[in-house]
Structures are given as C-alpha cells and as structure tokens.
Design a binder for these strands. Structure first.
Length: 565
RNA sequence: UGGGGUGUGGCCAAGUGGUUAAGGCAACGGGUUUUGAUCCCGUCAUUCGCAGGUUCGAAUCCUGCCACCCCAGCCA
C-alpha cells in the first residue's frame, strides 16, 4: 500500500527502461543486494534493498541476495541471519541466495588467467611500502620492483600463496594497470591477500581471500547481474569494474550505476559507528529502538510498509542529501494513523475524585477503536468515581489558549462526561496531588443531552480498573543534526535524554493482553507498541513508536521562545 | 595543485530548450472534529550555485568561476 508517487521514473529506472527497450542483454534485468555480513542492516540499506528489489520486479527480472563474504575476519553468521531476517521483514524475497564465497574456486581460476595474461603479478612489498609506492592524490605512484616478474614466477608464487607457503602480508596479488593513473583505484589494485583465518562458510579451504573489487565485480559477472546498483562512493571503482570484465572471459557484462546513499539527521549510518554504540553500550544492542537499524525500527514499532513509503518519498538521485527525521516520522504516522486501534493510557497520572458520582458505581462506556474507521468496532471502558488523567492536562494557572482542566473550568472526558474542577488538593510542598471535580450527569456520551460543548476533551482511565505499565519514551540518539561531521568524539554528541522510562503509567483494561505485533494509538499521546525486548517481570512494557503531531506543544515552545527574547 | 561526482524553496524532489518551475515533508493561515490527532481548503521559488554567452525563447545548450561530497585499506 505504498503511496503512489506522482513523480516520473528516477534516472536508474530510465536507464534500465532504455536498456530493456533496446533489447540490451536480451532485455533481461537482474539486480542484487550485496551486503557484507559484518553488521546489521540499517535504513540506508533499506534504500538499496528497495531500489534493487523493486527495479527487478518492475521489469520482470530477478534480484539476488548475495553475501559479499570476502573478509572472514569481520564476518559472522549472526550477521548473516540478521540480514536475511531483515530483508524478509522489509517485505522482499530474493530469487536466489548466493555468496561471493560460492565463487572462490572460479575467482581463483580467473585470477590465474589474469596472471597468465600478464595482467596481474605477485607483489612482495610490505603494506607500508605498497602505500608509499602508490603515490598521493596529486603525485603519480611508482612501479613496485616486483612488477615485472615473469608469468612463471608469478604463477608459482600465487600457487604458493594459495597453498599456504607464505605468511600473512608476505605477498599479495595485484592487477597490473597503471601506477600513474589519476584514479587511485587503477594504481595496481590489490586483488588477493593472505589471511590465515577460517571462513564462516568455507572453513580452512582457503588462506587467500579476494578483495572487494575483484570478488564483487566478478560475482556480478558470473551470476548474471545486468545492472549493478550501488552507492556513490563506488563511482571511482567503475573503471576498475569495467577493466576486470573486459580482461576476463566472463559470461555476462553487467553495468554499474551509482546513486546517493541515504543520510538521516540526528543519527549515524556507518556500520563502524553503529557497532561502537553497541559494543560500548551506549545503546541496548543492535535492535535498540533509537538505532537506525531495521531491527531497531522493528522493535520501535515502525512497520515495513512505512519504511518503504519513506524510501519512495525520498527518491533516487546522485545528489548528496541529508533527510530530516520528520520525513521518516511522517511516513510512520501515516501508516499508524490508518492502522492503529485507539486506546486510553495515562502516562503521568493525576488522580481525580468525582465527588458527585456514587462510590460503588461502575459504568462501561463504549469507545470507538478508530474514529475514522467504524468497521473496526469499539470496546468498553470502565468508568468510576476515581479516575486518573494526564497531569499535564491540568494547570492551576493556565495561559489563555489552554483548553484543558483548571480550577473552576470544565472539560469533556472523552467518551464519558463533562466534569468541572472544584478543588485542588496539594501536599506539604505545594504539589498538586489530587483534584476534586463534579460531573454533569446529563452529558454522558451518546445520551440526548450530550451535545453541550466545552473547550477541551481529555482522555482518562478508571483508577480502580487501571493496569500498571512501564512506558519507554525514546527520542533522537544524538543532539546534533550531523554527529558525523561534528567536532569531538561521537559520544559527546549523544542525546542524554534519548530514553525516559515512565513507571507509573496507567492503561485501560483493554490493553491487558495486547498483541505485541499490534500497534496502538494512545489517544492524544502517540503510537505505542509492546516492548517485547524489555518484558521481563509481570509488568506490562510499552514503548512509544512516535508521538502524535502536537500543535499545542508547538505553541508552548513558541511562547517559551518569546519569553526568552 | 590530480581524478571522479553533485548543485532547483527550510528538508527531499520532478523538470530531458517553448503555456503561470510538479509533488511530498516542514512552516504558516482557515474549516471540520468528544484525540490541540486525523481529514479538508488555502499560502509558501518573477526563479533554478554565480557570471557571461548562444537562441525569437534557457533550470534545461556553451564558456568561465564558486561551493560541497568521494578517492591515497593487504575493509566493503
């Protein structure tokens, strides 16, 4: 149910459509999403996933999930499983699941071909030496003394590398391209390095592993990718990508197209930084609701359809961008507004005694599950003499525009009665601890005389029937819009108020057996969901997915601004 | 001072030489409302990084300049 965009096809779809129209590659379309299993997927990956999977579907093609598992030191099956789960959760199913490691034998063969053709050589310089020989951005590199080894010697050495005759770092295999190229990627890039580490899939079969450019390009070419869609930072790699495909006898000639990656304000998207937040326990784990990971968003209560909608709202271009959080939240709200059933929950309770309501009386009042969707039915909410309201719905000395409860003022209790505040009870230190109100018996919701209008309507919960719950309120993880670019350490920019746990929340009884997979709107508050990861004892745990749009809060903020200036 | 990219309203983004420069988010104003929500209506770029040029006509073509991003892993 993604919202239909009125905008024309993006530049990638235009290219693919042209290719198909011209019968390029027999009009076949095949894409792939190639994550490295060294971390969890985040919202930036969701963009890449949507692009590749959707384009394949739109053109009647295929999309593979391929693990780019060429660096066994960083990779782990935990990540493999998480990635598969997250891709499926987002709503996509791959036509085939492959691994760069599936191609290790063929990749080795192709490397040998390159050596035989004199297009690759074994270099025995140290990593430091290679770096210094590479030159700089403005100065050309110089050839390694090993650059002109004979094919025979190279073959022997490369076989030796493969057999495990050498230590890590002793040799690498390099492409022989152009040490003076203005494109650093063409200055004899490393193709293979020795790593005496077991691989999560191939075990000890290999002690040499291909580098990204070699493995990725040729995996594409081997499995029949037609359009290799990736992010902008690989633009400089495209000449190398094409070079490899031109040099080697591969069955397919894919085309690489780059788009800008997704950046969101007030968060970070680099796997390295996310990993650090997890490992140094600034967050609860990869699925912490403040994380931009898909698992975090899932726990937060964002639904796949909302994420897909957000991605399509953002579009596909080559322009670097930085997207406001509001844009994501708007997509999340649009989905939840449509699908979440409404409930009453009082987050910070203030007790009210209805002095003219019988002590032992309980009424069951009907409340709609969704005001705009009557087909979703209703539930009964118990009402009694003692109720709880949101403490911020009462002000002793309210500003002009305040429409809620105040001494001598009336409000409508939603789906119930109009009440009037008669008395304010305070403790020794002057805090308001209880309100004594009278109720207008003529104004019960649905009754003939219920039409009387008052300025405000508030939600409530019967004190006697309330269910206790903890409610976690999450906010942005960082307090600066671009923590990546900000001065100082990452942790200096963390938002100290990114989590507030309310331990006195009171819920209406209908929430007692809430289905953890079902989102709710706590009326006038926001969208909430059961926090399964937190549910330990017998206390109910909810978390706030996103607040409701709040024009009152905005007014208050503006008033505060004016008071300051 | 090398190479590769990108510049359209606060944030995204259509636009592919020819009516008044789409749309979304945000903001602002108004209407409906027993959620200060939703919904609905309206306002919001005489101008497309800047300066020249070509053209009857330019965001779209040309030239120059400026700004920002990426690249010197045996990471991906």
């Amino acid at each position: 149910m993604d919202k239909e965009s009125t905008r024309g096809p993006d530049f990638i779809r235009q290219i693919v459509a042209d290719d198909v129209a011209q019968g390029k590659r027999d009009g076949r379309v095949q894409t792939r999403f190639p994550p490295e299993p060294n971390g969890y997927l985040h919202i930036g990956h969701a963009k890449a996933i949507c692009i590749s999977f959707n384009i394949a579907t739109e053109f009647g093609g295929k999309c593979f999930l391929r693990f780019d598992d060429t660096n066994p030191e960083a990779e782990d099956t935990e990540f493999v499983e998480a990635i598969e789960r997250d891709v499926r959760w987002l709503g996509f199913e791959w036509d085939d699941l492959t691994h760069a490691s599936d191609y290790f034998p063929k990749l080795f063969e192709l490397a040998v071909t390159l050596v035989k053709d004199g297009k690759a050589y074994v270099d025995s310089l140290s990593a430091d030496e290679i770096r210094s020989y590479r030159g700089t951005l403005t100065e050309p590199g110089k050839p390694s003394p090993h650059r002109d080894r004979s094919v025979e010697e190279n073959l022997e050495l490369f076989e030796g590398m493969r057999r495990g005759d050498f230590d890590e770092g002793q040799h690498v295999l390099r492409a022989k391209i152009d040490m003076a190229s203005p494109n650093m990627n063409l200055r004899d890039p490393t193709l293979y390095r020795i790593r005496k580490v077991a691989h999560q899939r191939t075990g000890d079969t290999w002690c040499i592993y291909p580098m990204y450019d070699f493995a990725h390009t040729l995996s594409d070419a081997l499995e029949g990718t037609t359009h290799s869609l990736c992010s902008l930072e690989f633009e400089d790699h495209r000449p190398l990508y094409n070079w490899l495909i031109e040099q080697l006898p591969v069955p397919h000639h894919p085309q690489q197209i780059e788009f800008s990656r997704l950046n969101l304000m007030y968060t970070v998207m680099s796997k390295r930084k996310l990993k650090r937040l997890v490992e140094e326990q600034y967050v609860d784990g990869w699925d912490d609701p403040r994380m931009p990971t898909l698992s975090g968003m899932r726990r937060r209560g964002y639904r796949p359809v909302a994420i897909r909608d957000f991605i399509s709202r953002v579009g596909v271009t080559k322009k670097d961008h930085l997207i406001e959080l509001g844009s994501l939240e708007s997509a999340v709200r649009d989905d939840l507004n449509e699908h979440a059933q409404r409930r009453f929950a009082v987050l910070r309770p203030l007790k009210i005694v209805l002095t003219n309501y019988p002590e032992d009386k309980v009424e069951l009042l009907e409340a709609a599950n969704h005001p705009n969707r009557p087909e979703l039915g209703s539930r009964e909410v118990p009402f009694s003499r003692e109720i709880l309201i949101e403490s911020e719905d009462f002000m002793e000395d309210p500003p002009g525009k305040f429409r809620r409860l105040a001494p001598g003022r009336e409000v409508r209790l939603r789906y119930a009665y109009i009440i009037k505040c008669e008395d304010v009870v305070k403790d020794e230190s002057g805090n308001v601890v209880e309100l004594r109100c009278t109720l207008d018996h003529e104004t019960r919701s649905g009754s003939d005389q219920a039409q009387r209008k008052v300025k405000g309507t508030i939600h409530w919960v019967s004190a006697e029937h309330a269910i206790r719950a903890n409610v976690s309120l999450y906010d942005r993880l960082f307090r600066v819009p671009t923590p990546d670019r900000a001065e100082g350490d990452l942790e200096d920019h963390l938002n100290p108020d990114s989590l507030e746990v309310l331990e006195k929340a009171a819920l209406e009884p209908a929430l007692a057996n809430a289905d953890p997979s079902e989102p709710f709107q706590f009326e006038r508050q926001g969208y909430f969901v059961v926090d399964t990861a937190r549910a330990a004892g017998d206390t109910l745990e909810f978390l706030r997915t996103v607040s409701l749009r709040d024009s009152w809060a905005k007014l208050e903020a503006q008033a505060l601004q004016q008071a300051k200036s």
